[in-house]
Nucleic acid binder design. Structure first.
Lengths: 118, 118
DNA sequence: AATATAATTGAATAGATATTCAACTAATGA
DNA sequence: TCATTAGTTGAATATCTATTCAATTATATT
């Protein structure tokens, strides 16, 4: 009975590769953060918001009109993006203007589009 | 009553920017595919699998051991990645070996990590 | 032929999440 | 001061999805 039967429901087939890979693997926290970041781009509404903000700074109402969605749902999503430091905002009068706060979004979109048009 | 009140619960504040942005915007399908693609990277388990496959070709059992998870859950996720053309597989005997089938994954991970270590 | 094992698959479940709705805050202007 | 509007927020709901479990397929071995 190999050691690994205790932690997995199968035997190790290529012990060396498994051990080597585990050794090189980034820690749990890195993968969690990485996945959380990609999850933010992995929603149609948020992808559109980010694309739009990459074109222009916009207030919530503008974004709602561009996406043809309610202010409330846009505001919820902006809150999510803001808390994750992907967008930032400034208040001017009654309006709140949002801009991208991440240099990588554009590059990520480009790579994503390359995959789509493989 | 402005035209936009019919399609959105608020008035347009910057009509020009809104119109210009709508005009430039990629179509619905593009955003859906883009979001679906990022969603695939937006899960800790799948992110680990993709990272691991970027190191070595591996069989299902190996991946399950590296991630310390059941073969079944790994196989489900591999199926998802396979159907999205992000990984491909070859059968050899009883084992099925998986490899990356997308050149952009590595670049995406790098950009994602740059964001994390902002 | 019979057994064992790698992998897949479908159904069920539990947890996550996007949108809606209603209530609220803050700023503007009459 | 009162009414209006931009935006936020919390709760509720409906949908989605990751993992588990059990059953099944396919290959290899005795």
């Amino acid at each position: 009975m190999s050691k690994n039967e205790f932690i997995c429901d199968c035997n190790v087939i290529h012990q060396e590769i498994v051990d080597k890979t585990i050794k090189k693997m980034p820690d749990e926290n890195t993968f969690n953060k990485l996945a959380e970041f990609f999850k933010l781009l992995g929603d149609t509404t948020r992808a559109k918001i980010l694309w739009a903000l990459d074109q222009n700074e916009m207030c919530v109402c503008d974004i709602a009109n561009v996406l043809n969605m309610s202010k409330s749902s846009i505001s919820h999503q902006l809150g999510t993006l803001r808390r994750s430091n992907i967008v930032k905002c400034r208040k001017q009068g009654k309006e709140v203007y949002y801009t991208l706060d991440d240099d990588h979004v554009k590059g990520l979109f480009e790579l994503g589009l390359e995959h789509i048009n493989h």
